[in-house]
Design a protein around this nucleic acid. Structure first.
Lengths: 143, 143
DNA sequence: CAAATAACGGACAATTTTGTCTTAATTACA
DNA sequence: TGTAATTAAGACAAAATTGTCCGTTATTTG
């Protein structure tokens, strides 16, 4: 599996936040219901993103979460890196430590270009891209 | 994580088998020691590959495993598909069922080309490619 | 100020993956 | 023929991931 469930949930949630018209807070419960994500689990995922500054939150009535930065400057790479770590973008396919140009594993030539394409694309696509596409093309994020 | 540990072990082991000069059987214990893979765990991974015909095995003294087909016709795709399933090559990045050209998710445009490149490359590279590279370039598979 | 709302944080349970151990079945060979 | 070697198979344990529950803290509103 490329991404953990936690990471998939995080991406869904942040795209949804990027789609909001104003900057008011959305409750996590609302997001969880929208995409049928276990509420308390989503809470923990969003806490990670909050700690990283990608998401802002306030407690209490009318509280909730919203993006902590301009959706233009939040990339898919950022979200994945916070939740799953950067490993998927850098690690050896066979898990060998130190695998690289100097001491490659047998799969290095195969995997390195794909991994690089993946990282570059993920760094190039912003939440704004994803969110505006979702609105303009009426895409579904969940369900 | 792209591949499970089971799958990484399976790839290491089959490359090693592809590197053997003759077609005699290699004991699983030998392979496990070579790459520091938990023996009984590797046993189960190789059983999967044996059931799929990618590997052949015999019990008893002088028993062990060897490739069940010409290394030319075994691809990296085959090995990954047997152990981890084909999901990684086909599934939606966000895990949405039915995501595709008709009803794409927001990440589809991003992920589909990478996934396709990954699948095509994996189908194009054989165990012979990997094994002969490992020999000629003196690459390491493990440790 | 009180009550309702909602994120935070910790404990705990379920599930999946990974790893270990034991026994059975099969084969080679002395 | 019997002993050692080796895969097969199942039970079980450990660890990681996923999911649930509950009490605390903070905020809005009446």
């Amino acid at each position: 599996m490329l991404l953990t469930s936690a990471c998939k949930y995080g991406i869904q949630a942040t795209i949804y936040l990027g789609m909001q018209k104003d900057d008011s807070f959305v409750s996590i419960k609302k997001i969880a219901e929208e995409f049928t994500i276990p509420f308390h689990f989503l809470t923990k995922v969003l806490q990670l993103l909050t700690q990283a500054g990608i998401v802002e939150s306030t407690k209490g009535a009318k509280g909730g979460v919203r993006l902590g930065k301009d959706p233009d400057v939040i990339t898919l790479f950022d979200i994945i890196a916070v939740i799953d770590g950067e490993g998927i973008f850098h690690d050896c396919m066979l898990g060998l430590p130190g695998c690289g140009l100097n001491t490659p594993c047998p799969a290095h030539e195969f995997w390195a270009p794909i991994r690089t394409k993946y990282e570059k694309s993920a760094r190039a696509i912003s939440l704004k891209d994803l969110a505006s596409d979702t609105i303009s093309k009426n895409l579904r994020i969940g369900k």
